[in-house]
Design a binder for these strands. Structure first.
Lengths: 188, 188
DNA sequence: CGATACATGTAAGAAGTTACATGATTGT
DNA sequence: ACAATCATGTAACTTCTTACATGTATCG
């Protein structure tokens, strides 16, 4: 049970297992059938990742005996797993992640409010918004300065990226509004 | 010089080398300083990738002697490299790529018109548009059916994904318009 | 009784990350 | 002289992909 880093897939598994204790097969189906990130549902990715998490002491699997079904190993988080999940979710949004791994940021957000609270989610949205407001203009500047040097498709591809970030920015605003709205009538 | 598959990074390098013959260091700087995909600029990724491409016969490096500078190995595409690049760019847009690797699709698009022509780019945009028009409603349906089961942040994260795809769809339309506009006055 | 879905795994290989290593050239 | 930048590389490690392997339960 030595200290191990947890991969992105590992963190996704922690997040899902926090929602429901599940078997490897359950998790594979989630990746195969629902739009949770873009993880492979191949057994060669998921079972080894679960074993690493278990070896690291973050989850614990036990064989289900209750029903007369096939043997299924149900995994659930240990306290160390909950702590690792919280640590991942609580990481401040860094500029670099906005540029290079928006996917991971959105995955974190998807698990966030349940695990570390709405206040953290709102804080996350604020930081994301701030970083996007800083980043988009630098992309626009680059596009402006290179307009003459780029082939049409290169320019358009860059446009596409910029529009994607702008959509994220709009989304962040509306998501924050949704929390404020819910906050008025919601529980706590 | 045996047959090798080319990784995404490898294809990106082929695309960039087709624009200008470059050294490994040049390419690293492109990844470090410009918004071309989200590739690492680490030497441990780029130099081995260049060596694999060279070993596969797709590029050819030669030491620069002309100027009194440090030794730089300048790489350029071989005919096999051009063929491999064209093959990658000409692949039809598959549904699965829209779902799991939009990044790669946009990278391909960025190199496309110069290497295989505007007609191919327009065709690409049409197919992309069609696939997005099919995919977005399935995401909306999923969101509708799961609305009650998802935590707020889960629902919002899914919203973010949907908005991203919608932005892509809008972009594809405007990009097509840009080609049609350019076509009227442009060369050929 | 054969096909399909359930359920878990391993082995080989490819490719990326991090960190280290080396050396030339330029600027101060 | 010394630091910074230019320029290329390797080694160890981690993780993912692809393909194979195994066996059970259910359905028609």
């Amino acid at each position: 049970m030595k200290v191990r880093d947890i991969s992105l897939l590992g963190h996704a598994l922690l997040g899902l297992l926090q929602q429901h204790p599940s078997s490897g097969y359950d998790l594979r189906k989630i990746f195969a059938l629902t739009p949770v990130g873009s993880f492979s549902d191949s057994p060669g990715a998921i079972y080894p990742a679960l074993h690493r998490l278990e070896e690291g002491g973050f989850i614990r699997g036990r064989l289900e005996e209750t029903s007369g079904l096939r043997r299924r190993k149900m995994f659930r988080l240990t306290p160390a797993g909950v702590a690792a999940l919280k640590k991942w979710l609580a990481k401040p949004v860094h500029r670099d992640e906005v540029v290079r791994s928006m996917d991971e940021l959105m995955l974190r957000f998807a698990f966030m409010d349940v695990v570390i609270g709405e206040a953290a989610s709102i804080q996350f949205l604020n930081t994301l918004e701030r970083e996007l407001k800083l980043y988009v203009p630098t992309l626009r500047e680059y596009l402006g300065s290179q307009r003459a040097n780029l082939p049409i498709s290169g320019r358009l591809a860059l446009e596409s990226g910029i529009r994607g970030y702008e959509a994220q920015l709009q989304w962040a605003k509306s998501a924050r509004a949704a929390y404020e709205q819910a906050g008025k009538g919601g529980t706590s």
